[in-house]
Simulated scan of single mutants.
Amino acid sequence: MEAARASVCKKSPKGKKDDLYHVLHKLPYGDSPYVRAKHAQLVEKDSEAAIVLFWKAINGGDKVESALKDMAIVMKQLDRSEEAIEAIKSFRGLCSKQSQGSLDNVLIDLYKKCGKVDEQIELLKHKVQLLYQGEAFNGKPTKTGRSNGKKFQVSIKQETSRLLGNLGWAYMQKMDYMRAEVVYRKSQIIDPDSNKACNLGLCLIKQGKYEEANLVLEQVLQHKVPGSEDGKTRQRTQDLVLEVRSMLSPQHFSDPLGHEDDYFKGLDRWMNELGPIRSKRLPIFEEISPFIDQLAC
């Protein structure tokens, strides 16, 4: 083990940064507290030792942003989410402006773990407000995201829709189905997908709006919403449709689209209007600005 540690701590010669050991364990090079913390976390699987070293890195100004996020993740795994929340709140001021968005994402995840729904809602509203004001993405139309080690580009409208979807789900945890419905509808206007359509349908069911719920869910079953081909989503949709139809008479099923057809055509027109950014705000925000202003209240 000591030999392995020495291998990590000794920086690989130039041109050999693809060293198999570092690639295999996804380890950075060097002998800093942060590097040793990552070794303890990923190789030794010693979470407590990793936390001690992450603290040392933070206090020593060594990759503070990465150390803070990585430490919070390890703490969450040890059911120390409350401690992780306090750590991020206390030390995020040492981090760059560009890192604040990712720190917010870690906080939201920690709030979920702790069941802090109100805090989660306020932070999600704040993040949506930043997008609306053009203060996110560093003024760019897209940002680079990562998932399972792969990079991908995320647009402002995709990020806005994602945040609104999370906000809708948070409202559902509080059984505030009216606000959840409003949020999910706005999310679907910006960037529709089948999962949020299902959640919107569930919100409508909870409010006794069975006809509206049936119309929304039929869109998924008829493959009119992106992601409708996903097996789990279709099964969930079918289960919800059965629940809805048990509440309705047969006459409601003769025209599955009804007046909602015009609504979805209107969404298409909205989406087609989204062109190159002419200012900090996307055109879609002009359509939903009253709703965004309400979020700030």
Rank of each mutant, 00 (worst) to 15 (best):
K17N: 11
I51R: 02
V23T: 12
R36L: 15
V23K: 10
I88W: 00
E44L: 15
S90G: 01
K10W: 07
V117H: 05
L94T: 04
L42R: 15
S47V: 10
G61D: 08
G15I: 06
N105Q: 13
R80W: 08
D62P: 04
E119R: 09
K63H: 14
K16F: 14
I85K: 06
K38P: 00
E119H: 11
S66I: 06
C114Y: 03
Q77V: 03
Q120D: 08
Q98F: 05
A49Q: 15
I73K: 11
K125Y: 02
S81N: 02
C95H: 03
S96T: 12
L20T: 12
H22K: 04
A87Y: 01
L103W: 03
D19H: 13
V23W: 07
K63Y: 10
M75C: 05
M71W: 02
S99M: 10
Y21I: 12
P13I: 09
V117L: 02
R80I: 03
P33N: 07
A57M: 08
M75A: 01
I85T: 09
W55C: 13
A67I: 03
L53W: 09
I58P: 00
G60D: 07
K26V: 07
S66W: 09
F91L: 08
V35G: 01
L123V: 04
Q98V: 09
Q120V: 02
L110S: 01
A50T: 05
K97R: 12
K16Q: 14
P28L: 08
